[in-house]
Simulated scan of single mutants.
Amino acid sequence: MPRLRLTLAYDGTQFAGWQLQAPGGGRTVQGCLEEALERLCGAPVRVHGAGRTDSGVHAMAQVAHCDVPEHRAAIPWQRALNALLPDDVSVVDAAPVADDFHARFSATGKIYRYTLWIAPGHILPWRRAYVWDVGRYCPLDVAAMDACAALFVGFHDFAAFQNAGSAVRTTARQVHAVCRIPSASPGEMVWEFRAEGFLKQMVRNLTGALVAVGSGKVSPEDIRSVLTSGQRRLAPGTAPARGLCLVAVEYGNDGRGRKRHLLHQLAAGQG
């Protein structure tokens, strides 16, 4: 059966995350996509996503793959799917791919961005669903936040920054970058997180730590101790989902690399 690689953008506000839920568990991105594919293919189609974004988390470039019947392979998939999908999810690219491509296990890295609203006293209403309003803590100590961010770069055990509910073989992860990037709005601060993979709600927990440091509640050295401890109960709280967006999934030069990364990520329980 031909395999398709789909790149998706969605507003996570009204979704109970990416992953299918038990009956009554809520509307999901995967569920909406599989319903549209079934209508086009005349049979159920299972979709595999690169990452299981949580309820309320957004995506600019989530990647998924699926296998479709040979006799339906010539469908103009992007246009056909977008005609059936709800307004808060869109296929931005659809293309055939080798049958050994796997949206999750072929991935070599992921990039998330978290947006903070830092203007005290007000928030633009149309940005409310996409930022965490931390204006009450401002001005933030940006130098201390940068020092804290540097602690997360490298290969570390991030057990203290993983929320419960995910079975993984190891909580060690290689983080390539945690840094501030330019924002289009002077009222916002955007943090970018690049890694081979992330634990459950890890980016939101790291963001919670950054804000705790920036607001003077804890110091970078306190966060260093938390990271070393491996104890989630010692870490600051989890940042809200609404400020988080998956902006890219990386696949290396050839877009595949499946064997090496499948073995590596299965061993790591990586998401």
Score class of each variant (00 low, 15 high):
Ile75Gln: 11
Arg39Val: 10
Arg46Thr: 15
His58Lys: 12
Val47Thr: 14
Asp11Phe: 05
Asp88Cys: 07
His71Trp: 00
Asp88Lys: 06
Tyr10Trp: 08
Leu6Trp: 03
Arg72Gly: 01
Arg27Gly: 08
Asp54Tyr: 13
Gly17Gln: 07
Asp54Gln: 04
Pro76Glu: 13
His71Leu: 00
Thr53Arg: 03
Val57Phe: 13
Gln19Lys: 09
Asp11Pro: 05
Tyr10Ser: 05
His65Phe: 03
Glu34Lys: 05
Asp67Trp: 00
Pro69Met: 01
Cys41Val: 00
Arg79Asn: 11
Pro23Met: 12
Gly31Asp: 14
Glu70Gly: 02
Leu33Gly: 08
Gln19Trp: 02
Cys66Gly: 02
Gly42Glu: 02
Ile75Phe: 01
Leu4Ala: 03
Leu20Ala: 13
Ala36Ile: 03
Val45Thr: 02
Ala80Met: 03
Pro76Cys: 06
Thr7Cys: 08
Gln21Ile: 08
Val45Ile: 15
Tyr10Pro: 07
Pro2Asn: 04
Gln19Phe: 10
Gln30Thr: 07
Glu34Ile: 02
Arg27Leu: 11
Leu20Met: 14
Leu85Trp: 11
Pro86Ala: 07
Val63Glu: 10
Gln62His: 11
Pro2Thr: 02
Arg79Thr: 14
His58Glu: 07
Arg5Asp: 04
Gln21Leu: 09
Ala22Gly: 04
Thr28Trp: 08
Asp11Gln: 08
Ala16Leu: 09
Gly17Ile: 07
Gly26Leu: 05
Cys41Lys: 00
Leu20Cys: 13
Ala36Arg: 09
Val47Arg: 08
Trp77Lys: 08
Ala50Asn: 03
Ala80Arg: 14
Trp18Val: 06
Ala16Phe: 11
Leu8Glu: 13
Val45Asn: 00
Arg72Cys: 00
Gln62Arg: 08
Gly51Trp: 04
Ile75Pro: 00
Val63Ala: 10
Glu34Arg: 03
Thr13Ser: 15
Cys66Phe: 05
Ala80Ser: 15
Leu84Glu: 12
Leu8Trp: 08
Leu20Gln: 13
Asp87Gln: 14
Leu4Gly: 03
His71Arg: 13
Arg46Tyr: 10
Val29Asp: 06
Gln21Phe: 01
His71Phe: 02
Ala9Lys: 14
Ala36Cys: 12
His65Asp: 15
Trp18Glu: 04
Gln62Val: 09
Met60Tyr: 13
Ala50His: 04
His58Gly: 10
Gly25Asn: 12
Arg3Lys: 15
Arg46Phe: 06
Val29Tyr: 04
Gln78Asn: 06
His48Gly: 04
His65Ile: 08
Leu6Cys: 03
His71Gly: 01
Thr53Pro: 03
Leu8Met: 13
Ala43Leu: 14
Gly51Ile: 01
Leu40Lys: 05
Gln62Asp: 09
Ser55Val: 12
Leu33Arg: 02
Pro69Cys: 00
Val29Leu: 05
Leu81Lys: 11
Val29Pro: 10
Glu38Asp: 00
Arg3Gly: 01
